[in-house]
C-alpha cells in the first residue's frame, strides 16, 4: 500500500524494547473539585505490545476514558492531578518529559480517536485541510503535497470520491464518514499506538461493523498497538486480543479474550456477562448485578466491588485484593478468583 510507505518516511524517534510499546505503571489520577477529591484512577498498571489489541472494558465512571486521556496527556490539570505513577512509552516516562517534547509524541507516536467525531472536527475548515494540517505541522510539507497526502489517506479509510470531497466541511459527511475522517487524522502520522475511545458508540450497528473492520485492517497493516476503550462486550469479543476490566478506577481483571469469556475470573466480569441480552439466544432470563459503582469520592474499604458482590465475605470488606496471577496469563483482583473461574 503506497500510502503506508509514503507516510512512514520520517520514521519513529523511539523504538520499543522487547516489543513493549506502552507501559502504564501504578497510575493514580485524582480530581480535586469543590466537593472533595475524587480518585478516578487508583493504581492501574498494564502494558501494550506492538501489534496487540488491548480492550479496556468498563462502565461509566470506571476510569477507562480518564486512563486514555492520561496516556495522551490531554487531561485538564487542574482539576486533575497525577500524584503517582508512570506512563512509559518505549521506556521513556511521558509524565516527566518536558511538555514540548511530549507534545511531539502526540500524532507521530501516540494518537487517539474520540467517540464524538462531529465535535472533534473543526466545523469551519474543510476536512482535507484539517488532515493536511497534520502533515504541514509535523512533516513540514508544502500545501499541495500535504493535500495530496490527505486525499490518499481519505481513500485509504474508504471515503468514496475522496478527491472530490477533500474540500467538503465536516457537517457535509454522515456520522460514519466523519468517524473515518477522524481515523484518517489519527493514523496520518503513522503512530505506534492508537487509542480508540468508544469509537463506535455513537454509530448505527451497520456502520459500527464497517468502522471496526477498518480499524482492525489498519492495525494489521501498520502493526499498531491498539487500545480499545469500550463498554460493549460484543465489540470486545470481535476485536480484542487481551482485555483489561476496570471497576471504580482499578483493574479488576486482565486476561486473554477467549479465557475471559469462557470463564471470567472476577465476579464483576461474570455479572456483566450474565446481565447482557444476547442476540443469539431466545428465552433468556435476564439478570443484573444490581447497585451502582461507588462514589469516587468515597470508595469503600476493601474490594471496591464488595457492596454489590453477592459472594462477598468479611475479608472483602477489609482487605483490598491485589491484582494477582490466578492462572497462567490471567490476573484477577478477587480474593475468591479461583472459585469464580471454576463456577
Amino acid at each position: 500500500m503506497s500510502t503506508a510507505t509514503d507516510t512512514t518516511t520520517s520514521g519513529h524517534t523511539y523504538t520499543p524494547k522487547d516489543g513493549v510499546l506502552l507501559e502504564v505503571d501504578d497510575l493514580f489520577v485524582e480530581f480535586h473539585t469543590r466537593d472533595g477529591v475524587a480518585t478516578a484512577i487508583n493504581g492501574v498498571s498494564f502494558e501494550l505490545r506492538q501489534g496487540e489489541s488491548l480492550a479496556i472494558l468498563g462502565e461509566s465512571g470506571s476510569g477507562k476514558s480518564v486512563t486514555a486521556q492520561a496516556i495522551m496527556g490531554i487531561l485538564d490539570m487542574p482539576p486533575a492531578v497525577i500524584p503517582q505513577g508512570h506512563i512509559r512509552y518505549c521506556g521513556e516516562d511521558l509524565l516527566t518529559m518536558p511538555e514540548e517534547q511530549r507534545r511531539k509524541t502526540r500524532g507521530p507516536e501516540i494518537s487517539m480517536i474520540f467517540q464524538d467525531a462531529l465535535s472533534s472536527l473543526n466545523p469551519v475548515f474543510p476536512v482535507g485541510w484539517q488532515i493536511a494540517e497534520m502533515f504541514r505541522v509535523h512533516r513540514g510539507m508544502n500545501k499541495s503535497d500535504a493535500l495530496e497526502q490527505a486525499v490518499r489517506l481519505m481513500e485509504r479509510v474508504q471515503i468514496p470520491a475522496a478527491r472530490d470531497r477533500v474540500k467538503a466541511y465536516p457537517h457535509q459527511f454522515s456520522g460514519g464518514m466523519r468517524q473515518r475522517i477522524m481515523i484518517a487524522m489519527a493514523i496520518a502520522l503513522d503512530p505506534a499506538v492508537l487509542i480508540a475511545d468508544e469509537p463506535t458508540t455513537a454509530l448505527d450497528v451497520t456502520v459500527q461493523a464497517q468502522i471496526m473492520a477498518l480499524l482492525e485492517e489498519l492495525q494489521e497493516e501498520r502493526q499498531m498497538g491498539l487500545i480499545l476503550i469500550t463498554h460493549d462486550l460484543g465489540v470486545v469479543a470481535d476485536v480484542a486480543d487481551r482485555i483489561a476490566v476496570m471497576y471504580s478506577g482499578r483493574l479488576v481483571e486482565k486476561a486473554e479474550v477467549l479465557d475471559l469469556y469462557a470463564s471470567p475470573g472476577h465476579p464483576y466480569t461474570r455479572g456483566l456477562l450474565e446481565s447482557i441480552p444476547r442476540l443469539d439466544q431466545k428465552g433468556q432470563t435476564l439478570a443484573a448485578i444490581g447497585g451502582l459503582p461507588p462514589n469516587l469520592m468515597n470508595i469503600p474499604p476493601g474490594c471496591p466491588f464488595n457492596p454489590r458482590c453477592r459472594m462477598a465475605q468479611d475479608i472483602c470488606r477489609t482487605d483490598r485484593p491485589a491484582l494477582r496471577e490466578v492462572a497462567p496469563g490471567r490476573l484477577s483482583a478477587c480474593h475468591f478468583a479461583e472459585e469464580v473461574i471454576d463456577a
Binding site: 465476579p267 450474565e274 432470563t285 435476564l286 444490581g290 469503600p300 457492596p307 463456577a343
Partner: peptide, 27 residues
C-alpha cells in the same frame, strides 16, 4: 439461535429481581 429457556442465571453473581438495586454501593 440457541434456546436458553432452561438456563437460570447464576444467583451467586447476579439477581433477576426487579427491585431497584441502585443504592447498593453508591452510598
Amino acid at each position: 439461535t440457541v434456546d436458553v429457556s432452561d438456563l437460570v442465571p447464576d444467583e451467586r453473581f447476579v439477581s433477576s429481581s426487579t427491585d431497584d438495586l441502585d443504592d447498593v454501593g453508591s452510598g
